Computed example of a mutant assay.
Amino acid sequence: MNIRNRYAKVCLFLWVLGMCLTAHSLKAQSVIPVPLKMEQGTGCFLLSENTKLYINLQGLEAQLLENCLQALPVHLKKGKKKDTQNILSLLITEKNHQLPSPESYTLSVTPQQILIRATSGAGLFYGLQTLLQLAQPSGAGSYSIASVEIEDTPRFAYRGLMLDVSRHFSTKEFIKKQIDALAYYKINRLHLHLTDAAGWRLEIKKYPLLTEFAAWRTDPTWKQWWNGGRKYVRCDAPGTYGGYYTQDDIREILEYARQHYITVIPEIEMPSHSEEVLAAYPQLSCSGEPYKNSDFCVGNEETFTFLENVLTEVMELFPSEYIHIGGDEAGKSAWKTCPKCQKRMKDEHLANVDELQSYLIHRIEKFLNNHGRHLLGWDEILQGGIAPNATVMSW
């Protein structure tokens, strides 16, 4: 071997050694959320075009995991089960004390290989998210990953974020970007606040005015609109602001979320925060006139026909176990003098308007339960007596 070749090999060795020695010192805060257990080893693994990938899954789920690795612009070669050098292995294994949950995973990084184990595709997916957080660019299209042993399992089964697309409408492309970010931090629920006074955001085929009229307002920012006339306009009016998701848009968002192991929970507000609905369909309010009420008329049987028709279309779209119905900040003042509401209270032996709200919540919960779903609502559904199977979310 001549001096020049020997010098080049020594330089390459020193460069790789330097990358390992200078790799960021791993602390618990290096990974978000903090893993259950994390212990740093010696050296590092260099992920490059020469690295092989082996997954003992087949079909679509394996493809989802390969897609996840596209966050690193490194095309990995196909590996085999017996490979032990320069390989990233993703293995489904049996449940054990290290993997108590389908979302649990173990991650082992040595200079020779990376091994992620889990009992489900979700666990492997979260192990990959941790790997992506640990990967550091090291030049020439490669990534350095410090040796580490991680054992991780979620402390909370429900890890969620709410996105208010009523007050601040977001495109489906924006929502997909949020899903990318949520998955990176192992968030597994996306709560979409789809309806509120500021605009109705979901296509309901049985009630076209919800998207032709109730989805559009006069001001681009919610605060301007709230402090102004609080008027709605048709979708083709000059200077209008708003938008909605077609049912095909929702299917696309849901499929993208599924590929990132995220459940999307829809929220359809009732009985209050419903000014936009009552402007489009004023017969559902106590006054029968637009811009007079924010609460549905609970004494009006047509209210329940509307709500059940809407929820039927919602359930046909969203596979979520939970359907959020809001339930917060009902003014209830119109119910005190509304003949239909007073008759409902008398017929159902309800002592006050709090119990009238509880009547609506109970009835909607029964409808959802009959369709295999569970009702989720804000704190105020406690008023007047909580429905027996409801889940309360505090805001």
Results as ranks from 00 to 15, higher is better:
338 C>R: 13
343 K>N: 07
338 C>V: 11
353 V>W: 01
357 Q>L: 09
341 C>H: 04
351 A>H: 08
347 D>W: 10
349 H>F: 07
347 D>M: 01
349 H>N: 10
356 L>D: 13
330 A>E: 11
357 Q>Y: 08
329 E>H: 03
342 Q>I: 05
329 E>N: 08
339 P>K: 08
347 D>P: 08
347 D>T: 05
337 T>I: 14
352 N>D: 15
333 S>H: 12
340 K>R: 11
344 R>M: 11
344 R>L: 15
343 K>H: 06
341 C>V: 03
350 L>N: 10
333 S>T: 09
338 C>F: 11
343 K>A: 08
349 H>Q: 14
358 S>Y: 12
352 N>L: 00
357 Q>M: 12
350 L>K: 07
355 E>W: 06
338 C>Y: 09
337 T>G: 09
345 M>S: 01
345 M>E: 03
351 A>Y: 01
329 E>G: 03
346 K>S: 08
347 D>N: 15
353 V>Q: 05
357 Q>I: 03
348 E>G: 02
334 A>V: 07
336 K>W: 12
355 E>K: 05
344 R>W: 10
355 E>F: 03
343 K>T: 04
354 D>N: 14
331 G>A: 06
355 E>M: 05
330 A>S: 15
338 C>H: 11
350 L>W: 09
338 C>T: 04
335 W>Q: 02
349 H>W: 14
335 W>N: 03
332 K>W: 07
334 A>N: 04
330 A>P: 12
330 A>Q: 13
344 R>I: 05
342 Q>E: 02
348 E>C: 10
336 K>F: 15
351 A>T: 04
347 D>G: 05
340 K>M: 07
336 K>A: 15
347 D>H: 13
346 K>D: 00
357 Q>A: 11
355 E>L: 02
351 A>Q: 06
333 S>K: 15
336 K>H: 13
341 C>E: 02
345 M>Q: 01
331 G>R: 13
352 N>F: 04
340 K>S: 06
355 E>R: 02
340 K>I: 01
354 D>K: 15
358 S>N: 10
358 S>M: 06
341 C>I: 00
349 H>V: 14
350 L>A: 07
335 W>G: 01
333 S>L: 09
343 K>F: 02
356 L>P: 09
352 N>T: 07
332 K>G: 00
335 W>K: 01
347 D>V: 03
338 C>I: 12
344 R>F: 10
344 R>N: 09
349 H>S: 14
356 L>A: 11
338 C>M: 09
350 L>F: 01
358 S>A: 15
334 A>Y: 06
333 S>I: 14
348 E>Y: 01
356 L>W: 13
336 K>D: 15
352 N>E: 06
353 V>M: 05
335 W>Y: 02
334 A>P: 08
351 A>W: 01
335 W>M: 00
348 E>V: 02
356 L>T: 12
